[in-house]
Every structure is written in structure tokens, then in C-alpha cells.
């Protein structure tokens, strides 16, 4: 499963971050790296970006980039 497919409100662990080097470096700097826990907080309308929480950082990313992040699902929130 990728981050793009992760249902809103569910948590998961990052298994692998794909994509070209520059993008991976940016994702790492924003806290997206293997082993970290992530959740999708909300999705914008009309195929817009998604809001992701990783650690204590909230970020927005497009669905295309989110599909580069492979996950292992751990549990459902609440």
C-alpha cells in the first residue's frame, strides 16, 4: 500500500521512500523516512493535495508524490 491509498485517519509505518534523489532528500528533510509513523489527516477536493502528519510535523503533498511512499499498515486510529 502507498501513502496515497492510506485511508484518512489511519496510521501506518513507512516501509520505503521511492523517487529521484532530490525529491527523496526533501522528503527526508521533512521527516518522511523508513520506519517513521505517518497518517493522512485530510484530502483536498478535486484531486488536490493531501495533508500528512509525520512526527510533530504536518505537511501537504500531492497525491503523485504520496504514491511514492510505500507503507506497512499498523492499526486504526480510535
Amino acid at each position: 500500500m502507498t501513502l496515497e491509498q492510506l485511508p484518512t485517519g489511519q496510521r501506518a509505518l513507512i516501509a520505503e521512500v521511492q523517487g529521484e534523489d532530490g525529491l527523496r532528500a526533501r522528503m527526508l528533510a521533512l521527516g518522511l523516512r523508513a520506519g517513521r509513523e505517518v497518517a493522512v489527516i485530510r484530502r483536498a477536493n478535486l484531486g488536490g493535495p493531501i495533508q500528512v502528519r509525520v512526527g510533530s510535523t504536518d505537511l501537504m503533498m500531492r497525491r503523485k508524490e504520496a504514491s511514492l511512499i510505500q507503507l506497512t499498515v499498523i492499526e486504526t486510529l480510535r
Binding site: 523517487g19 525529491l23 526533501r26 522528503m27 521533512l30 510535523t57 505537511l59 501537504m60 503533498m61 508524490e65
Partner: peptide, 9 residues
């Protein structure tokens, strides 16, 4: 270009 942006509190 990919879009990755922090949403600060």
C-alpha cells in the same frame, strides 16, 4: 515539480 510544503501550527 513535486509539491511538498510544511503546514506549521
Amino acid at each position: 515539480e513535486p509539491l511538498l510544503l510544511e503546514l506549521p501550527p
